[in-house]
Each structure stands twice: as structure tokens, then as C-alpha cells.
């Protein structure tokens, strides 16, 4: 058994972690038409550059359930990053509707979107995007600061999640003192610490060697098995295979949406 997985299956993990219920809730339940966690209807994103219209997303409809592990694949420029940005409320669609937990968030303002990002999503980026001057612990505490959690609780939560990621010894290290794989695990800890509904990972293994990349993917697999909803953006089919559902996107349109056969 791999050491990272050893950390995740640490006996402490199930008790301290996160209300199990919240993550495990309705994993296998098929919900009604409006019961989906994420539901996009005829979504389009059009950029205007001078007189040119660039259609980044063209009339996309998509539903994702609680507990799914979805990979979105496509070549660069296919619109997959735009799609992730819109799902993650970093960007807004030009047309169409976006329902999150049954609520239409198409018309949310910047502040409401910030709150949605804070409460509902955990981001994992290709370049880790940790704040270089903060320690691992402080980085993981950030989402809780913006959620208004008190200092003591914040620290406890952050340490718990970092331990879960096998970084208990390194909580006071700065990102520059950590390896790529460790940095990405800090980033995953930061994404998890606020108990998000969805983890959005954009090429999480893109900057890592294959061994660290595998470790990270195993973490995602473990998180999925614990009931977390994960959306993974990648152009690497080997990474995409970890997911259970594979959506391929090209020129701003979904070209296939299929289940991944278990390896």
C-alpha cells in the first residue's frame, strides 16, 4: 500500500473528518431534473475582441450529480478552461442558465459569486497557486478567514486537513520549501478545508513528474471514494481515466459524454 494512502486511511481520518454525511449524502441517488448539483442549460460564452466574436462555449447543456468524479477533456483552446471557470463561478456565461444546488446563480453579483466560490468550491490549479509568503498552514487557513471562522477553529481545521494530506510535519514550511507534489497536496488541503460541495481541479498533475502526479490522482480517487464531487480538467487521457465519467469537449461543444470503464 502506498504511503500517501496510508495517511488517508489513518484511523483518525474518519472521525475527525468533515461530516461524513455531507460528503456521502446521496452519492448513488439519481435526483430529479432540478435535483442535480450542477446543471447547465444552453450555456454559451462569447468573447468580443474588437469586431471579432470568439465563441468559447457554444450552447452547452450538462448535469453533474453529487458524488460524481467527472473528467472534462479536450485540446487546448477547446473551451474546457472557460467551462471550468464558469462552473467555478470565476466567470459568468454570456447566455444560458446555470443552476447550482437547484438555485439559479446566473444573475448573481460579484459578491454573491465570491461567497459561492468560498462555500461551494475548492480549486486545485495546475500551478498550485499557493501564496508564496505564507506557510502551508496559513495558505490552508485562507478560505476559512474569508468564511469568517475564528482563529482557533481555523487552525485546528487546517492542521487536520494538512495531516490528512500527509503534511503534518510540514505545516510551517513555505511553498518554496516544499516539493511540487507536496505543494499540490497543500493546495488540495486548501480546497478541502471549507468542506466544499465540488472540487474543481484544472490540470492538477500538469506541473508534476509522473510519480507525484500519480500520487495526486490517488488522493483524488480516495476523496471520490469518500463521497466528494470532483470535476477534473485535463488533456491527458491517463489522468482522465481516474474519473468515472469522461466528457470530451471540442470547439466549445460537448462531443462525447460517457462512463469510463473501470481499469
Amino acid at each position: 500500500m502506498h504511503s500517501r494512502r496510508g495517511d488517508l486511511t489513518d484511523p483518525e481520518f474518519p472521525q475527525t473528518s468533515v461530516d461524513e454525511d455531507r460528503y456521502a449524502d446521496g452519492i448513488n441517488e439519481k435526483e430529479g431534473a432540478f435535483g442535480y448539483m450542477i446543471r447547465l442549460e444552453n450555456l454559451s460564452k462569447i468573447y468580443r475582441m474588437g469586431d471579432n466574436r470568439v465563441v468559447a462555449l457554444n450552447n452547452i447543456s450538462l448535469s453533474i450529480n453529487k458524488g460524481e468524479f467527472v473528467a472534462i477533456m479536450g485540446p487546448s483552446g477547446s473551451g474546457k478552461s472557460t467551462l471550468m471557470n464558469i462552473i467555478g463561478c470565476l466567470d459568468v456565461a454570456t447566455e444560458g442558465k446555470y443552476y447550482l444546488d437547484g438555485r439559479d446563480i446566473t444573475s448573481y453579483n460579484q459578491n454573491q459569486l465570491a461567497e459561492v466560490r468560498n462555500k461551494k468550491f475548492g480549486f486545485v490549479f495546475q500551478g498550485f497557486n499557493l501564496l508564496p509568503k505564507l506557510t502551508a498552514l496559513e495558505n490552508v487557513e485562507l478560505p476559512l478567514i474569508y468564511a469568517g471562522v475564528g482563529a482557533k477553529k481555523r487552525r485546528e481545521e487546517a492542521i487536520r486537513v494538512l495531516k490528512m494530506m500527509g503534511l503534518g510535519e510540514r505545516i510551517h514550511h513555505r511553498p518554496s520549501e516544499l516539493s511540487g507534489g507536496q505543494q499540490q497536496r497543500v493546495a488540495i488541503a486548501r480546497a478541502l478545508v471549507n468542506h466544499p460541495s465540488v472540487i474543481l481541479a484544472d490540470e492538477p498533475t500538469g506541473n508534476l513528474d509522473s510519480k507525484s502526479g500519480m500520487e495526486i490522482m490517488e488522493i483524488f480517487e480516495e476523496l471520490h471514494s469518500r463521497g466528494n464531487t470532483i470535476i477534473l480538467i485535463t488533456h491527458d487521457i491517463n489522468v482522465a481515466r481516474y474519473a468515472r465519467r469522461l466528457i470530451t469537449i471540442r470547439d466549445g461543444q460537448i462531443v462525447s459524454d460517457e462512463e469510463v470503464e473501470m481499469q
Binding site: 460579484q110 465570491a114 497557486n129 499557493l130 501564496l131 478560505p143 474569508y146 486548501r190
Partner: peptide, 16 residues
Amino acid sequence: TREIGIRKAIGAKRRD
């Protein structure tokens, strides 16, 4: 700028 982007992505509001 990048730090601000990261903070916003993880939930910092305009006011923050």
C-alpha cells in the same frame, strides 16, 4: 495581481 486572483478564487469578496 496573482495573489489577488488566488484570494478571489478562494472566496475573498471585493470588500475583503
